[in-house]
């Protein structure tokens, strides 16, 4: 059987909010390593990879590897019924066709269980190699969210250029154009820093619609990491403290 208890249940609620707009149905892979997911959006332009490591749960048991197919919108409906302070436990039998979410209030005076029907989902699993990227940018996740939101009111795509001077986000639309440059800044608190690690300057263009969707993960982490190489998907990573990560991969636009 599979059983995973998370005292900070709000984390699971936030994880789901970070992926449900991008992906409709997804297979969760349960193993001794943890609770993981890899899924693409319906247009196959982006991919999300999630890992919640087993040692991040207060209790974790997985007798054999299992795949649990879920409709993320329905899973979200159930997790929204958990209070932000609730402890959440997920349970499933090896042969079962349901997963149970149990919510316990912090005072243990309210216990709820919600049973979600599992589904068979045909999904491709892609092998993602470890790559050395030409540029890595770490910046406040709220700042990245703000930039993506602001630029999407001007244009549909953003060109991200990383150089030793900083990271520049540019867009063009019918009403005009916009450029936002964030310079490396290590003189402030760690969570407010912008740090650029550069092997070589890189410029890529992406659809803002997807980047905006990725920023739904902002509540999970104070900083976001962008990794870019020429003609490769950008990796947008949010680290979940002591547990794992949500990583998004977005294919670049084809240059004219």
């Amino acid at each position: 059987m599979f059983e995973a208890r998370l005292v900070q249940g709000s984390l699971l609620k936030k994880v789901l909010e970070s992926i449900k707009d991008l992906v409709t149905d997804a297979n969760f892979d349960c193993s001794n390593n943890g609770f993981a997911l890899q899924a693409m959006d319906s247009s196959h332009v982006s991919l999300v990879a999630l890992l919640l490591r087993s040692d991040g749960f207060e209790h974790y048991r997985c007798d054999r590897n299992m795949t649990m197919g879920m409709n993320l919108s329905n899973m979200s409906k159930m997790l929204k019924c958990a209070g932000n302070e609730d402890i959440i436990t997920m349970k499933a039998d090896d042969t079962g066709d349901v997963v149970t979410f149990m919510f316990e209030s912090p005072d243990q005076d309210k216990i709820s269980d919600f049973e979600l029907k599992l589904m068979d989902i045909d999904s491709e699993h892609l092998g993602i190699p470890d790559t050395e990227y030409a540029a890595t940018v770490k910046m406040p996740s709220s700042e990245f969210m703000r930039i993506c939101r602001d630029l999407s009111s001007i244009g549909d795509t953003v060109t991200i250029s990383v150089s030793k001077d900083g990271v520049k986000f540019s867009t063009t639309g019918d009403i005009g154009q916009a450029n936002i440059t964030c310079r490396q800044n290590t003189s402030v608190d760690k969570e407010e820093q912008t740090i650029i690690e550069l092997q070589e300057p890189v410029t890529l263009t992406f659809a803002l619609r997807y980047l905006n969707s990725f920023t739904k993960a902002t509540p999970l982490a104070p900083t976001v990491q962008l990794q870019m190489s020429k003609e490769l998907p950008v990796v947008v990573q949010y680290l979940i403290a002591d547990m794992g990560y949500v990583r998004y991969y977005l294919a670049p636009k084809i240059e004219d």
């Binding site: 693409m40 247009s43 196959h44 332009v45 982006s46 991919l47 491709e124 699993h125 892609l126 092998g127 993602i128 190699p129 659809a207 490769l232 998907p233 991969y249 977005l250 294919a251 670049p252 636009k253 084809i254």
Partner: peptide
């Protein structure tokens, strides 16, 4: 859309 790469073209099928 046609001006957009398919993400699967960058990664190997497992």
């Amino acid at each position: 859309s046609p001006d957009q790469h398919d993400i699967t073209s960058f990664f190997s099928q497992r």
